[in-house]
């Protein structure tokens, strides 16, 4: 671990993930990402941008034979890529755990909720079954499941969608991980249930103190849950900042387009400002700005090389030539009328 990474809970540097098969997919292309303890960072991006692959890489869940991974990932100073055997099992669930859009990915249909949580606790801690069940009960109460005692004996299918999502969170947090990975855990829920789960996660973060990487394609959800947002496009972060910086001062043309397309307060008499085209095929390693074909500001330079990564302040970055201070005429303000 380098000097610069000290104090970070998570440190991803130059992560590259390539899938081989019928065709090669350049899913992640030189990703850098850091997270401080207790921080909630949202990875915001459209489908196929590499959000889930990033989280799976962190848990070493990518198919071994077909994926090629390079770069470095450290959690709590531990080199994730080097983990195997016992150390990897201890890491999964105890150091890092994950929740999903579909609770079926985490919850086993043939065991009761109580048994599953107790089992997870006994895997990581030397406790009796009775003690583990007490932890399970405590966890169900902390995720605000009503009548927790009787719910312990429920099978997943006996619960409503929102309750299953809470049970999955209870399972993920039972061993008090330092880092929680959340892959669109509220996307399939109704808005009225989604906001309950988002507020619950915020509360649990304060209670347990873990760091969270939250993945979503919904800007509104990102605003509700996160401290910081990293906007992802074609396997890399194009912009990062605090929630306020991203919402109030988006710099990258893609971020600006996403905000305009969100329809919040959209003028009904106007045509929507949409981003033309669609995301690039990932069959080649990007050698220029991946957003260029859809970008209203693109010029020759954008196609000639990867965009420079500007870091105007701590935790703030923009990967776009429009940020080049050397060329003030190209500042985004000068182009604002397009968005």
């Amino acid at each position: 671990m380098s000097e610069a990474t000290k104090g970070n809970l998570l440190d991803i540097s130059n992560l590259t993930v390539r899938f081989h098969g019928e065709r090669t997919v350049h899913a992640i292309n030189g990703l850098d990402l850091t997270l401080k303890p207790g921080e909630i960072l949202t990875i915001l991006g459209e489908s196929g941008s590499g959000k889930s692959v990033t989280l799976k890489a962190l848990l070493k869940l990518l198919p071994k034979k077909r994926s090629e991974i390079s770069g470095a990932m450290h959690v709590d100073g531990v080199d994730v890529l080097a983990l195997k055997g016992q150390a990897l099992s201890a890491y999964r669930g105890k150091t890092v755990s994950m929740i999903f859009q579909e609770p079926a990915l985490a919850l086993d249909p043939v065991y009761t909720i109580g048994d599953q949580i107790a089992e997870a606790v006994m895997r990581h801690e030397k406790v009796s079954r009775k003690e583990a069940l007490a932890v399970a009960l405590d966890m169900l109460k902390r995720v605000r499941i009503p009548s927790a005692e009787s719910r312990l004996k429920n099978y997943p299918h006996e619960m409503s969608g929102g309750m299953r999502q809470r049970a999955m969170i209870a399972l993920a947090l039972a061993c008090k991980p330092d880092l929680l990975l959340a892959d669109e855990p509220t996307t399939a829920l109704d808005a009225t249930v989604q906001i309950q789960v988002l507020l619950l996660l915020r509360e649990l973060q304060r209670e347990f103190g873990m760091g969270i990487i939250f993945v979503t394609h919904d800007i509104g959800v990102a605003v509700e849950i996160s401290d910081r947002i990293a906007v992802m496009y074609a396997g890399n972060v194009v912009e990062e900042g605090t929630v306020a910086e991203i919402i109030k001062d988006p710099r990258h043309p893609y971020t600006q387009g996403l905000l305009a397309a969100n329809l919040h307060d959209a003028d009904r008499s106007q045509t929507l400002a949409s981003i033309p085209g669609s995301p690039p095929p990932l069959d080649e390693k990007p050698d220029h700005c991946s957003f260029a074909p859809r970008c209203a500001h693109a010029r020759d330079r954008c196609y000639a090389a990867l965009p420079p990564v500007h870091r105007p302040g701590p935790g703030r970055r923009v990967a776009c030539i429009l940020e080049d201070a050397s060329d003030p005429a190209e500042k985004p303000g000068a182009m604002a009328e397009i968005h």
Partner: peptide, 17 residues
């Protein structure tokens, strides 16, 4: 979801499903 980082939702408007 609120789109205002300074004014996020504090209390869920409804409980349960």
């Amino acid at each position: 979801p609120s789109m205002d980082p300074d004014n996020r939702t504090q209390v869920p408007p409804l409980a349960g499903d």
